[in-house]
Structures are given as structure tokens and as C-alpha cells.
């Protein structure tokens, strides 16, 4: 394998804000360096490309020790929305786009965006549920085909 990374295929499998952003940042960062990139959305990670849900992705405030929030407080109604709102404001200051805009940016950068067939079947979704840039639904085998010759990153 060459010393230089020329291609990456990133799997986004989680549906929380902190589960989705790292993969998007890695994909966008790859394209910024001229590295070929694919993003494969699976399981709850599909929310990032789901037209009805991608604007409503939230930080998990329960069972998330990284927040250093008392467990009971994490479950208070509205806590997740509040923390998400605060984080979104901080991200905007750093010029990190909201998820829908970020996914569109990555698509425009020439990265391939794909939905996982098993998850689409499981959640009874169809291509129309997804944003126009990510309506190709592929199997795991097809994903490996697209990832051939590059690195695979699971998030």
C-alpha cells in the first residue's frame, strides 16, 4: 500500500449528532486534501440523509458520560434539544455547517453518498426518503466493491 492515502470509504452508523459529525468531517476533510471519498450510511446513521430527519439530529444526553451531566439531568425533557442548540451555536462560530448543509457540501465535493440496503429494508424506507444526492441504495458487498483500493473507516 502506498504511503499516501488516496481513497477513503467512511461508514456512519450512529444517529446522534456526535455520532454523525465525525464521519462527515472526515469525509469533507478527505475531499479537501484531494482524497477520493465515499460515505456509507447505515442503521441510524441513515438519519443524516433522511429528508424528514436530518434537520432534527440531536446530541444524546442520556448514557453519554462525555457530557459530564448527572444521569437524571440528561433525561430531563428538553435537555437534548438544549444541549444540541448550544453545540450548534458553537459549531456555527467555527464555520461547521449544520448536518443538511454539510452533507450537501460533501456531495458537491464529488464524494459518493450511499444508503445501506439492509437498514433501508429494516426501517421500511425507500429512495424518496433520502436527499437527492444520496438515493443510491447498495448492499454491503457493493460497498466493499466501491471501497476497493482504499481505506475503510467505521464510525
Amino acid at each position: 500500500m502506498s504511503d499516501v492515502i488516496e481513497k477513503v470509504s467512511i461508514i456512519i452508523s450512529k444517529g446522534s449528532l456526535e455520532g454523525i459529525y465525525p464521519g462527515l468531517i472526515m469525509a469533507n476533510g478527505a475531499r479537501m486534501e484531494g482524497i477520493e471519498a465515499n460515505v456509507f450510511f447505515t442503521f441510524f446513521g441513515l438519519d443524516a440523509i433522511n429528508k424528514a430527519k436530518h434537520e432534527h439530529v440531536k446530541v444524546a444526553t442520556v448514557g453519554n458520560p462525555g457530557l459530564h451531566l448527572a444521569t437524571w439531568a440528561g433525561g430531563v425533557p428538553g435537555m437534548s434539544a438544549l444541549v444540541t442548540h448550544q453545540l450548534a451555536r458553537e459549531m456555527e462560530k467555527l464555520d461547521i455547517p449544520p448536518i443538511p448543509e454539510f452533507v450537501e457540501m460533501i456531495a458537491d465535493s464529488g464524494a459518493g453518498l450511499y444508503a445501506c440496503k439492509a437498514s433501508v429494508d429494516l426501517f421500511k424506507l425507500s429512495p424518496e426518503d433520502f436527499i437527492p444526492q444520496a438515493q443510491e441504495i447498495i448492499t454491503v458487498g457493493e460497498f466493499y466493491g466501491k471501497a476497493a483500493g482504499g481505506q475503510i473507516i467505521f464510525t
Binding site: 469533507n28 479537501m32 464555520d95 455547517p97 448543509e101 457540501m105 458537491d108 465535493s109
Partner: peptide
């Protein structure tokens, strides 16, 4: 500082 790819776009 140089603009981000987002503001460039």
C-alpha cells in the same frame, strides 16, 4: 486567515 471551504463556496 484563509477562508474555509464553506465560506469559499
Amino acid at each position: 486567515s484563509a477562508p474555509s471551504i464553506r465560506s469559499l463556496g
